[in-house]
Design a protein around this nucleic acid. Structure first.
Length: 510
RNA sequence: GGUCCAUUCGUCUAUCGGUUAGGACGCAAGAUUUUCAUUCUUGAAAGAGGAGUUCGACUCUCCUAUGGACUACCA
Protein backbone atom coordinates (compact mmCIF):
# COMPACT_ATOMS: atom_id res chain seq x y z
CA UNK A 1 0.00 0.00 0.00
CA UNK A 2 1.58 3.19 -1.12
CA UNK A 3 1.30 6.13 1.13
CA UNK A 4 0.00 9.56 0.42
CA UNK A 5 2.34 11.77 -1.58
CA UNK A 6 3.50 14.65 0.55
CA UNK A 7 6.31 16.89 -0.68
CA UNK A 8 7.77 20.03 0.73
CA UNK A 9 9.53 23.09 -0.51
CA UNK A 10 11.81 24.20 2.30
CA UNK A 11 13.67 27.40 1.53
CA UNK A 12 15.84 29.34 3.89
CA UNK A 13 14.85 33.00 4.24
CA UNK A 14 18.34 34.35 3.64
CA UNK A 15 17.39 36.55 0.71
CA UNK A 16 15.13 36.56 -2.33
CA UNK A 17 14.31 33.20 -3.81
CA UNK A 18 16.08 32.81 -7.11
CA UNK A 19 14.88 31.04 -10.21
CA UNK A 20 16.62 27.81 -9.31
CA UNK A 21 14.63 27.76 -6.11
CA UNK A 22 11.46 28.52 -8.00
CA UNK A 23 12.12 25.57 -10.27
CA UNK A 24 12.62 23.28 -7.29
CA UNK A 25 9.32 24.50 -5.85
CA UNK A 26 7.66 24.03 -9.23
CA UNK A 27 8.84 20.42 -9.62
CA UNK A 28 7.65 19.65 -6.10
CA UNK A 29 4.31 21.19 -6.88
CA UNK A 30 3.92 19.39 -10.20
CA UNK A 31 4.83 16.10 -8.56
CA UNK A 32 2.35 16.64 -5.74
CA UNK A 33 -0.49 17.56 -8.08
CA UNK A 34 0.33 14.79 -10.50
CA UNK A 35 -0.07 12.25 -7.72
CA UNK A 36 -2.94 13.87 -5.92
CA UNK A 37 -0.70 14.68 -2.97
CA UNK A 38 0.06 17.66 -0.78
CA UNK A 39 2.51 20.50 -1.25
CA UNK A 40 3.98 21.84 1.96
CA UNK A 41 5.89 25.06 2.51
CA UNK A 42 8.33 24.93 5.38
CA UNK A 43 10.60 27.81 6.24
CA UNK A 44 14.03 26.68 7.36
CA UNK A 45 15.20 29.63 9.37
CA UNK A 46 17.65 27.86 11.63
CA UNK A 47 20.49 30.17 10.72
CA UNK A 48 19.92 33.16 12.93
CA UNK A 49 22.98 34.88 11.46
CA UNK A 50 21.81 34.98 7.90
CA UNK A 51 18.15 35.72 8.40
CA UNK A 52 16.93 38.51 6.10
CA UNK A 53 13.73 40.36 6.94
CA UNK A 54 11.24 40.29 4.11
CA UNK A 55 12.64 37.17 2.50
CA UNK A 56 9.82 34.93 3.70
CA UNK A 57 7.16 37.27 2.35
CA UNK A 58 9.08 37.44 -0.89
CA UNK A 59 9.14 33.66 -1.18
CA UNK A 60 5.42 33.37 -0.57
CA UNK A 61 4.58 36.09 -3.05
CA UNK A 62 6.87 34.57 -5.67
CA UNK A 63 5.19 31.19 -5.43
CA UNK A 64 1.81 32.82 -5.62
CA UNK A 65 2.78 34.78 -8.72
CA UNK A 66 3.94 31.57 -10.39
CA UNK A 67 0.70 29.80 -9.58
CA UNK A 68 2.37 27.34 -7.23
CA UNK A 69 -0.24 26.63 -4.59
CA UNK A 70 0.61 25.64 -1.06
CA UNK A 71 -1.66 23.11 0.64
CA UNK A 72 -0.02 23.20 4.02
CA UNK A 73 2.61 25.32 5.67
CA UNK A 74 3.67 28.83 6.49
CA UNK A 75 0.90 31.21 5.56
CA UNK A 76 -1.80 28.56 5.35
CA UNK A 77 -1.35 26.38 8.45
CA UNK A 78 -2.08 22.68 8.67
CA UNK A 79 -2.02 19.63 10.93
CA UNK A 80 1.73 19.81 11.56
CA UNK A 81 1.96 23.51 12.43
CA UNK A 82 4.05 25.44 13.09
CA UNK A 83 5.91 25.19 9.78
CA UNK A 84 8.60 27.73 10.57
CA UNK A 85 11.56 25.96 12.14
CA UNK A 86 12.38 28.81 14.49
CA UNK A 87 8.96 28.17 16.02
CA UNK A 88 9.72 24.50 16.44
CA UNK A 89 12.90 25.02 18.47
CA UNK A 90 11.92 22.92 21.44
CA UNK A 91 11.32 19.86 19.27
CA UNK A 92 14.87 19.40 18.08
CA UNK A 93 16.87 19.25 21.31
CA UNK A 94 14.96 16.17 22.38
CA UNK A 95 15.92 14.36 19.20
CA UNK A 96 19.53 15.46 19.44
CA UNK A 97 19.70 14.03 22.94
CA UNK A 98 18.02 10.84 21.81
CA UNK A 99 20.83 10.35 19.32
CA UNK A 100 23.49 10.96 21.97
CA UNK A 101 21.87 8.44 24.32
CA UNK A 102 21.71 5.87 21.56
CA UNK A 103 25.40 6.36 20.83
CA UNK A 104 24.84 7.92 17.40
CA UNK A 105 26.02 11.36 18.44
CA UNK A 106 28.11 13.11 21.06
CA UNK A 107 28.74 16.46 22.67
CA UNK A 108 31.65 18.54 21.47
CA UNK A 109 33.03 21.59 23.27
CA UNK A 110 35.46 23.02 20.76
CA UNK A 111 35.23 26.73 20.18
CA UNK A 112 35.10 28.25 16.73
CA UNK A 113 38.63 29.60 17.26
CA UNK A 114 40.03 26.21 18.19
CA UNK A 115 38.49 24.64 15.12
CA UNK A 116 39.87 27.42 12.97
CA UNK A 117 43.32 26.85 14.36
CA UNK A 118 43.04 23.14 13.68
CA UNK A 119 42.03 23.78 10.08
CA UNK A 120 44.88 26.22 9.56
CA UNK A 121 47.39 23.80 11.03
CA UNK A 122 46.21 21.00 8.78
CA UNK A 123 46.31 23.30 5.80
CA UNK A 124 49.88 24.25 6.60
CA UNK A 125 50.77 20.60 6.24
CA UNK A 126 48.87 20.38 3.00
CA UNK A 127 46.03 18.37 4.49
CA UNK A 128 42.38 19.07 5.08
CA UNK A 129 41.06 18.93 8.58
CA UNK A 130 38.13 16.60 9.03
CA UNK A 131 36.19 16.28 12.25
CA UNK A 132 35.70 12.52 12.23
CA UNK A 133 36.72 9.22 13.80
CA UNK A 134 40.39 10.13 13.61
CA UNK A 135 40.13 13.09 15.97
CA UNK A 136 36.93 12.94 17.95
CA UNK A 137 38.50 11.07 20.82
CA UNK A 138 41.40 13.50 21.09
CA UNK A 139 39.25 16.60 21.11
CA UNK A 140 37.08 17.86 23.99
CA UNK A 141 34.02 15.70 23.41
CA UNK A 142 31.78 13.46 25.46
CA UNK A 143 33.76 10.64 23.92
CA UNK A 144 37.04 11.76 25.46
CA UNK A 145 35.83 13.54 28.61
CA UNK A 146 34.38 11.87 31.68
CA UNK A 147 30.64 11.97 32.18
CA UNK A 148 31.10 14.27 35.17
CA UNK A 149 33.25 16.65 33.19
CA UNK A 150 30.70 16.76 30.39
CA UNK A 151 27.90 17.49 32.82
CA UNK A 152 29.95 20.11 34.58
CA UNK A 153 30.76 21.91 31.37
CA UNK A 154 27.15 21.92 30.26
CA UNK A 155 26.00 23.02 33.70
CA UNK A 156 28.34 25.96 33.82
CA UNK A 157 27.13 27.18 30.48
CA UNK A 158 30.05 26.27 28.21
CA UNK A 159 28.89 26.34 24.62
CA UNK A 160 28.58 22.93 23.05
CA UNK A 161 27.30 21.26 19.95
CA UNK A 162 25.99 17.81 19.21
CA UNK A 163 27.86 16.06 16.45
CA UNK A 164 26.84 12.97 14.51
CA UNK A 165 29.16 10.05 15.14
CA UNK A 166 29.84 9.02 11.57
CA UNK A 167 30.64 5.30 11.41
CA UNK A 168 34.05 4.25 10.18
CA UNK A 169 34.53 2.39 6.91
CA UNK A 170 31.00 1.47 6.16
CA UNK A 171 29.37 1.56 2.75
CA UNK A 172 26.11 3.47 2.63
CA UNK A 173 23.96 2.47 -0.31
CA UNK A 174 21.40 4.96 -1.47
CA UNK A 175 18.76 5.22 -4.14
CA UNK A 176 17.89 8.41 -5.90
CA UNK A 177 14.87 8.67 -8.18
CA UNK A 178 16.88 10.65 -10.71
CA UNK A 179 20.41 9.40 -10.26
CA UNK A 180 19.86 5.76 -9.43
CA UNK A 181 22.03 3.80 -7.05
CA UNK A 182 24.82 5.67 -5.25
CA UNK A 183 27.38 4.27 -2.80
CA UNK A 184 29.62 6.13 -0.40
CA UNK A 185 32.17 5.01 2.16
CA UNK A 186 31.48 6.69 5.50
CA UNK A 187 35.18 7.13 6.21
CA UNK A 188 35.21 9.95 3.69
CA UNK A 189 32.51 11.78 5.62
CA UNK A 190 32.81 13.89 8.74
CA UNK A 191 30.94 14.36 12.00
CA UNK A 192 28.42 17.03 11.12
CA UNK A 193 27.08 19.37 13.75
CA UNK A 194 23.43 18.60 14.41
CA UNK A 195 22.61 21.01 17.18
CA UNK A 196 24.24 24.08 18.69
CA UNK A 197 23.69 25.31 22.20
CA UNK A 198 24.75 28.85 21.32
CA UNK A 199 21.44 29.67 19.66
CA UNK A 200 19.54 26.57 20.79
CA UNK A 201 18.88 25.72 17.18
CA UNK A 202 19.49 22.59 15.12
CA UNK A 203 21.43 22.70 11.87
CA UNK A 204 19.85 21.89 8.57
CA UNK A 205 20.57 18.17 8.76
CA UNK A 206 18.79 17.49 12.02
CA UNK A 207 15.90 19.87 11.51
CA UNK A 208 15.36 18.58 8.03
CA UNK A 209 15.20 14.92 8.93
CA UNK A 210 13.12 15.46 12.04
CA UNK A 211 10.62 17.68 10.28
CA UNK A 212 10.37 15.53 7.18
CA UNK A 213 9.61 12.63 9.47
CA UNK A 214 7.13 14.48 11.63
CA UNK A 215 5.42 16.02 8.63
CA UNK A 216 5.21 12.62 6.95
CA UNK A 217 7.04 13.70 3.82
CA UNK A 218 7.01 10.97 1.20
CA UNK A 219 9.39 12.44 -1.38
CA UNK A 220 12.25 14.87 -0.98
CA UNK A 221 12.82 16.73 -4.24
CA UNK A 222 15.69 19.16 -3.90
CA UNK A 223 18.75 20.55 -5.63
CA UNK A 224 21.79 18.48 -6.49
CA UNK A 225 23.92 20.45 -4.05
CA UNK A 226 22.40 18.21 -1.38
CA UNK A 227 23.57 14.95 -2.87
CA UNK A 228 26.81 14.90 -0.86
CA UNK A 229 24.88 14.99 2.39
CA UNK A 230 22.50 12.24 1.42
CA UNK A 231 24.55 9.53 3.21
CA UNK A 232 24.30 11.51 6.44
CA UNK A 233 20.57 11.79 5.97
CA UNK A 234 20.23 8.07 5.33
CA UNK A 235 22.22 7.37 8.47
CA UNK A 236 20.07 9.74 10.47
CA UNK A 237 16.91 7.93 9.43
CA UNK A 238 18.60 4.72 10.50
CA UNK A 239 19.77 6.20 13.79
CA UNK A 240 16.26 7.30 14.62
CA UNK A 241 14.82 4.01 13.50
CA UNK A 242 12.67 5.69 10.88
CA UNK A 243 13.78 3.71 7.83
CA UNK A 244 10.28 2.37 7.26
CA UNK A 245 8.88 5.79 6.54
CA UNK A 246 12.00 7.34 5.10
CA UNK A 247 11.09 9.50 2.11
CA UNK A 248 12.37 8.78 -1.36
CA UNK A 249 14.91 11.23 -2.67
CA UNK A 250 15.25 13.00 -5.99
CA UNK A 251 18.16 15.35 -6.59
CA UNK A 252 17.55 17.87 -9.34
CA UNK A 253 20.25 19.02 -11.75
CA UNK A 254 21.53 22.52 -11.15
CA UNK A 255 20.70 25.63 -13.12
CA UNK A 256 23.93 26.91 -14.63
CA UNK A 257 25.09 30.34 -15.74
CA UNK A 258 24.38 31.16 -19.42
CA UNK A 259 28.12 31.38 -20.01
CA UNK A 260 28.88 28.11 -18.26
CA UNK A 261 31.24 27.91 -15.36
CA UNK A 262 29.15 27.21 -12.33
CA UNK A 263 25.70 27.38 -10.98
CA UNK A 264 23.50 30.36 -11.53
CA UNK A 265 24.12 32.77 -8.71
CA UNK A 266 22.29 35.73 -7.40
CA UNK A 267 24.74 38.20 -8.83
CA UNK A 268 24.73 36.90 -12.41
CA UNK A 269 21.61 38.81 -13.35
CA UNK A 270 22.96 42.29 -13.14
CA UNK A 271 26.25 41.19 -14.60
CA UNK A 272 24.67 39.66 -17.68
CA UNK A 273 21.52 41.68 -18.02
CA UNK A 274 18.69 39.29 -17.20
CA UNK A 275 16.68 38.70 -14.04
CA UNK A 276 17.55 35.80 -11.78
CA UNK A 277 14.67 36.49 -9.44
CA UNK A 278 10.96 36.06 -10.00
CA UNK A 279 10.08 39.41 -8.43
CA UNK A 280 11.78 42.73 -7.99
CA UNK A 281 13.67 42.76 -4.70
CA UNK A 282 14.82 45.46 -2.37
CA UNK A 283 17.09 44.30 0.40
CA UNK A 284 16.92 45.80 3.87
CA UNK A 285 20.12 47.66 3.01
CA UNK A 286 18.52 49.19 -0.05
CA UNK A 287 20.08 47.08 -2.78
CA UNK A 288 17.73 46.15 -5.57
CA UNK A 289 17.54 43.34 -8.08
CA UNK A 290 15.47 42.83 -11.22
CA UNK A 291 12.54 40.44 -11.25
CA UNK A 292 10.83 38.65 -14.10
CA UNK A 293 7.47 40.04 -13.10
CA UNK A 294 8.54 43.66 -13.17
CA UNK A 295 10.65 43.15 -16.28
CA UNK A 296 7.47 42.31 -18.13
CA UNK A 297 7.43 38.54 -18.20
CA UNK A 298 4.19 36.65 -17.92
CA UNK A 299 4.12 34.22 -15.03
CA UNK A 300 2.93 31.45 -17.36
CA UNK A 301 5.86 32.03 -19.70
CA UNK A 302 8.33 32.09 -16.84
CA UNK A 303 6.94 28.86 -15.40
CA UNK A 304 6.84 27.19 -18.81
CA UNK A 305 10.44 28.10 -19.50
CA UNK A 306 11.57 26.95 -16.07
CA UNK A 307 9.71 23.65 -16.31
CA UNK A 308 11.57 22.76 -19.49
CA UNK A 309 14.95 23.55 -18.00
CA UNK A 310 15.78 20.07 -16.79
CA UNK A 311 12.59 18.24 -17.67
CA UNK A 312 10.96 17.36 -20.95
CA UNK A 313 7.79 15.52 -21.89
CA UNK A 314 9.45 13.31 -24.48
CA UNK A 315 7.28 14.86 -27.16
CA UNK A 316 7.90 17.92 -29.29
CA UNK A 317 5.46 20.09 -27.39
CA UNK A 318 7.07 23.27 -26.05
CA UNK A 319 4.17 25.28 -24.73
CA UNK A 320 2.46 24.04 -21.61
CA UNK A 321 -0.20 25.36 -19.31
CA UNK A 322 0.25 24.55 -15.63
CA UNK A 323 -2.37 21.83 -15.96
CA UNK A 324 -0.54 20.29 -18.90
CA UNK A 325 2.68 20.35 -16.92
CA UNK A 326 0.94 18.60 -14.05
CA UNK A 327 -0.51 15.96 -16.36
CA UNK A 328 2.81 15.30 -18.03
CA UNK A 329 5.29 15.62 -15.20
CA UNK A 330 7.37 12.69 -14.13
CA UNK A 331 10.63 12.52 -12.23
CA UNK A 332 12.09 9.96 -14.57
CA UNK A 333 12.04 12.48 -17.37
CA UNK A 334 14.16 14.91 -15.36
CA UNK A 335 17.64 15.09 -16.81
CA UNK A 336 20.77 14.32 -14.84
CA UNK A 337 23.08 17.06 -16.01
CA UNK A 338 22.97 20.75 -15.20
CA UNK A 339 21.07 23.06 -17.53
CA UNK A 340 22.44 26.37 -18.67
CA UNK A 341 19.88 29.08 -18.49
CA UNK A 342 19.36 30.94 -21.76
CA UNK A 343 17.90 34.43 -21.53
CA UNK A 344 16.97 34.41 -25.23
CA UNK A 345 14.79 31.40 -24.78
CA UNK A 346 12.99 33.06 -21.88
CA UNK A 347 12.16 35.92 -24.21
CA UNK A 348 10.95 33.58 -26.89
CA UNK A 349 8.58 31.92 -24.44
CA UNK A 350 7.26 35.30 -23.41
CA UNK A 351 6.64 36.27 -27.01
CA UNK A 352 4.73 33.03 -27.58
CA UNK A 353 2.44 33.82 -24.68
CA UNK A 354 2.09 37.39 -25.89
CA UNK A 355 0.91 36.18 -29.29
CA UNK A 356 -1.73 34.02 -27.67
CA UNK A 357 -3.26 36.73 -25.50
CA UNK A 358 -6.73 37.95 -26.38
CA UNK A 359 -7.40 41.61 -27.08
CA UNK A 360 -9.25 41.83 -23.76
CA UNK A 361 -6.31 40.50 -21.77
CA UNK A 362 -3.92 42.77 -23.62
CA UNK A 363 -6.13 45.80 -23.05
CA UNK A 364 -6.01 45.33 -19.33
CA UNK A 365 -2.23 45.03 -19.31
CA UNK A 366 -1.70 47.79 -21.82
CA UNK A 367 -3.96 50.48 -20.39
CA UNK A 368 -1.60 51.48 -17.56
CA UNK A 369 1.19 51.99 -20.08
CA UNK A 370 -1.03 54.09 -22.31
CA UNK A 371 -1.99 56.23 -19.35
CA UNK A 372 1.68 56.67 -18.50
CA UNK A 373 2.09 58.20 -21.93
CA UNK A 374 -0.89 60.45 -21.43
CA UNK A 375 -3.23 58.48 -23.65
CA UNK A 376 -6.82 58.04 -22.50
CA UNK A 377 -8.67 55.54 -24.59
CA UNK A 378 -11.26 52.80 -24.34
CA UNK A 379 -10.35 49.22 -23.45
CA UNK A 380 -11.69 48.26 -26.83
CA UNK A 381 -9.28 50.47 -28.74
CA UNK A 382 -6.36 49.67 -26.46
CA UNK A 383 -7.01 45.97 -27.02
CA UNK A 384 -7.47 46.41 -30.73
CA UNK A 385 -4.19 48.30 -31.14
CA UNK A 386 -2.36 45.73 -29.03
CA UNK A 387 -3.99 42.90 -30.94
CA UNK A 388 -2.83 44.28 -34.29
CA UNK A 389 0.77 44.55 -33.12
CA UNK A 390 1.18 41.79 -30.54
CA UNK A 391 2.93 39.42 -32.94
CA UNK A 392 5.90 41.78 -33.04
CA UNK A 393 6.11 42.25 -29.30
CA UNK A 394 7.99 40.26 -26.70
CA UNK A 395 6.89 42.30 -23.71
CA UNK A 396 3.82 44.34 -22.93
CA UNK A 397 6.06 47.37 -22.70
CA UNK A 398 7.07 46.89 -26.36
CA UNK A 399 3.51 47.70 -27.30
CA UNK A 400 3.85 51.44 -26.80
CA UNK A 401 6.58 51.84 -29.39
CA UNK A 402 4.67 49.57 -31.68
CA UNK A 403 1.29 51.27 -31.42
CA UNK A 404 1.94 54.87 -30.39
CA UNK A 405 0.97 56.25 -33.82
CA UNK A 406 -2.50 54.80 -33.41
CA UNK A 407 -2.99 57.27 -30.62
CA UNK A 408 -0.63 60.17 -31.27
CA UNK A 409 -0.11 61.99 -34.58
CA UNK A 410 3.49 62.36 -35.72
CA UNK A 411 4.98 65.81 -35.39
CA UNK A 412 8.46 64.85 -36.48
CA UNK A 413 9.49 62.59 -39.30
CA UNK A 414 12.18 59.97 -39.45
CA UNK A 415 15.06 61.25 -41.54
CA UNK A 416 15.68 58.21 -43.65
CA UNK A 417 12.06 57.82 -44.66
CA UNK A 418 11.75 61.55 -45.34
CA UNK A 419 14.76 61.62 -47.64
CA UNK A 420 13.49 58.67 -49.53
CA UNK A 421 9.87 59.62 -50.03
CA UNK A 422 9.29 63.33 -49.36
CA UNK A 423 10.60 64.47 -52.68
CA UNK A 424 9.78 64.68 -56.36
CA UNK A 425 6.17 64.10 -57.20
CA UNK A 426 5.33 62.41 -53.91
CA UNK A 427 4.00 65.44 -51.99
CA UNK A 428 1.73 66.24 -54.93
CA UNK A 429 0.62 62.64 -55.12
CA UNK A 430 -0.16 62.70 -51.42
CA UNK A 431 -2.58 65.54 -52.11
CA UNK A 432 -4.30 63.29 -54.62
CA UNK A 433 -4.42 60.49 -52.09
CA UNK A 434 -6.00 62.91 -49.68
CA UNK A 435 -8.82 63.56 -52.12
CA UNK A 436 -9.34 59.88 -52.72
CA UNK A 437 -9.52 59.22 -48.97
CA UNK A 438 -11.82 62.18 -48.48
CA UNK A 439 -14.24 60.66 -50.97
CA UNK A 440 -14.49 57.33 -49.14
CA UNK A 441 -17.52 56.83 -46.91
CA UNK A 442 -16.90 53.30 -45.74
CA UNK A 443 -13.53 53.71 -44.06
CA UNK A 444 -13.15 50.05 -43.13
CA UNK A 445 -9.83 48.45 -43.74
CA UNK A 446 -11.14 46.31 -46.59
CA UNK A 447 -12.99 49.04 -48.40
CA UNK A 448 -10.25 51.63 -48.13
CA UNK A 449 -7.75 49.12 -49.39
CA UNK A 450 -9.95 48.25 -52.36
CA UNK A 451 -10.67 51.87 -53.31
CA UNK A 452 -7.13 53.16 -52.91
CA UNK A 453 -5.70 50.07 -54.59
CA UNK A 454 -7.97 50.50 -57.60
CA UNK A 455 -7.09 54.16 -57.84
CA UNK A 456 -3.33 53.45 -57.78
CA UNK A 457 -3.78 50.81 -60.48
CA UNK A 458 -5.86 53.12 -62.62
CA UNK A 459 -3.34 55.94 -62.39
CA UNK A 460 -0.52 53.45 -62.86
CA UNK A 461 1.33 54.95 -59.94
CA UNK A 462 4.02 53.03 -58.10
CA UNK A 463 2.45 51.22 -55.15
CA UNK A 464 5.56 51.60 -53.05
CA UNK A 465 5.91 55.32 -53.63
CA UNK A 466 2.30 56.09 -52.76
CA UNK A 467 2.08 53.82 -49.75
CA UNK A 468 5.35 54.86 -48.23
CA UNK A 469 4.57 58.53 -48.65
CA UNK A 470 1.24 57.95 -46.97
CA UNK A 471 3.06 56.03 -44.26
CA UNK A 472 5.37 58.96 -43.72
CA UNK A 473 2.38 61.22 -43.27
CA UNK A 474 0.42 58.98 -40.95
CA UNK A 475 3.18 57.26 -39.00
CA UNK A 476 6.20 59.49 -39.45
CA UNK A 477 8.53 56.55 -39.91
CA UNK A 478 9.31 53.60 -42.10
CA UNK A 479 7.76 51.05 -39.85
CA UNK A 480 4.46 50.00 -38.41
CA UNK A 481 1.46 47.88 -39.23
CA UNK A 482 -0.31 47.57 -42.54
CA UNK A 483 -1.30 51.00 -43.83
CA UNK A 484 -4.99 50.22 -43.89
CA UNK A 485 -4.85 49.02 -40.28
CA UNK A 486 -3.78 52.55 -39.48
CA UNK A 487 -6.36 54.32 -41.62
CA UNK A 488 -9.19 52.21 -40.26
CA UNK A 489 -8.03 52.63 -36.70
CA UNK A 490 -7.53 56.39 -36.65
CA UNK A 491 -10.45 57.15 -38.95
CA UNK A 492 -11.03 59.48 -41.83
CA UNK A 493 -10.82 62.82 -40.05
CA UNK A 494 -7.56 62.01 -38.34
CA UNK A 495 -6.08 60.70 -41.59
CA UNK A 496 -6.88 63.90 -43.39
CA UNK A 497 -5.56 65.97 -40.50
CA UNK A 498 -2.24 64.16 -40.52
CA UNK A 499 -1.92 64.55 -44.27
CA UNK A 500 -2.70 68.26 -44.04
CA UNK A 501 -0.16 68.62 -41.27
CA UNK A 502 2.73 67.14 -43.20
CA UNK A 503 1.78 69.06 -46.31
CA UNK A 504 1.95 72.32 -44.40
CA UNK A 505 4.86 71.62 -42.12
CA UNK A 506 7.43 69.42 -43.81
CA UNK A 507 9.53 70.92 -46.55
CA UNK A 508 10.10 68.57 -49.47
CA UNK A 509 13.68 67.47 -50.11
CA UNK A 510 15.24 69.47 -52.98
C1' G B 1 43.51 17.97 -2.56
C1' G B 2 39.36 14.44 -1.18
C1' U B 3 34.23 12.54 -2.06
C1' C B 4 30.16 12.39 -5.19
C1' C B 5 27.53 13.65 -9.79
C1' A B 6 27.53 14.54 -14.88
C1' U B 7 29.17 14.50 -20.49
C1' U B 8 24.42 14.19 -27.99
C1' C B 9 24.50 20.52 -32.66
C1' G B 10 26.92 27.21 -29.65
C1' U B 11 22.48 26.41 -25.94
C1' C B 12 17.97 23.37 -24.02
C1' U B 13 17.02 18.49 -25.38
C1' A B 14 14.76 13.44 -28.06
C1' U B 15 16.92 8.57 -28.72
C1' C B 16 15.76 3.63 -23.34
C1' G B 17 21.52 -1.92 -28.89
C1' G B 18 19.95 -1.65 -35.32
C1' U B 19 17.43 5.95 -36.92
C1' U B 20 19.40 9.64 -43.25
C1' A B 21 20.75 10.91 -34.82
C1' G B 22 14.72 14.30 -34.39
C1' G B 23 12.78 19.04 -32.30
C1' A B 24 13.39 24.04 -30.09
C1' C B 25 16.31 28.75 -29.15
C1' G B 26 19.98 31.45 -31.57
C1' C B 27 22.47 32.10 -36.43
C1' A B 28 22.44 32.31 -42.09
C1' A B 29 19.85 32.34 -46.80
C1' G B 30 15.34 32.58 -49.53
C1' A B 31 9.95 33.49 -50.02
C1' U B 32 5.77 36.64 -48.64
C1' U B 33 5.05 42.09 -47.82
C1' U B 34 3.41 49.24 -49.11
C1' U B 35 7.46 49.88 -44.39
C1' C B 36 9.29 47.54 -39.99
C1' A B 37 8.21 43.16 -38.13
C1' U B 38 5.61 38.63 -38.08
C1' U B 39 5.07 34.17 -40.71
C1' C B 40 6.77 30.27 -43.95
C1' U B 41 10.71 27.41 -46.41
C1' U B 42 15.65 25.94 -46.51
C1' G B 43 20.59 25.60 -44.55
C1' A B 44 24.97 25.20 -41.40
C1' A B 45 25.52 22.73 -36.70
C1' A B 46 26.34 17.08 -32.25
C1' G B 47 27.30 11.55 -29.86
C1' A B 48 34.67 14.34 -25.38
C1' G B 49 38.85 10.61 -26.29
C1' G B 50 40.47 5.49 -25.81
C1' A B 51 39.69 0.43 -24.73
C1' G B 52 36.28 -3.46 -24.23
C1' U B 53 31.10 -6.43 -24.43
C1' U B 54 28.18 -7.47 -28.93
C1' C B 55 26.56 -9.80 -35.39
C1' G B 56 25.82 -4.50 -34.33
C1' A B 57 26.86 0.84 -29.67
C1' C B 58 25.21 7.64 -28.83
C1' U B 59 22.86 3.86 -25.92
C1' C B 60 26.13 -1.37 -21.61
C1' U B 61 31.31 -1.79 -18.81
C1' C B 62 36.16 0.27 -17.69
C1' C B 63 39.96 4.03 -18.13
C1' U B 64 41.25 9.05 -19.37
C1' A B 65 39.78 14.02 -20.12
C1' U B 66 36.53 17.89 -19.17
C1' G B 67 32.58 20.29 -16.47
C1' G B 68 29.97 20.73 -11.86
C1' A B 69 28.48 20.13 -6.70
C1' C B 70 30.06 19.35 -1.85
C1' U B 71 34.04 19.58 1.58
C1' A B 72 31.03 25.55 8.02
C1' C B 73 28.52 25.59 14.93
C1' C B 74 25.02 28.06 6.12
C1' A B 75 21.17 26.16 3.98
Amino acid sequence: MSREVRVRFAPSPTGPLHMGGVRTALYNYLFARRHGGKMILRIEDTDSQRFVPGAEEYIIESLKWCGIEIDEGVGVGGPHAPYRQSERKEIYLKYAKQLVEAGWAYYAFDTAEELDALRKAAEAEGKTFAYNYTVREQLPTSLSLSAEEVEARIARGDIWVVRFKMPENEIVEMDDLIRGHVKVNTSTLDDKVLYKSADELPTYHLANIVDDHLMEISHVIRGEEWLPSLPLHYLLYRAFGWQDTQPQFAHLPLLLKPTGGGKLSKRDGDKMGFPVFPLFWTSPTGETAHGYREDGYFAEAFVNMLALLGWNPGTEQELFSMQELIDGFSLDRVSKSGARFQPDKAKWFNAQYMHRKSDEELAELFQPILREHGVETSDELAGKAAGIMKERATFITDLWDLTSYFFVAPTSYEEKQTKKYWKGENPARLKEVREVLASIDDFSKENTEAVVGAWIAEKEYGMGQIMNTLRLALVGAGKGPGMYDVTAFIGKDECLKRIDYILENLKPIE
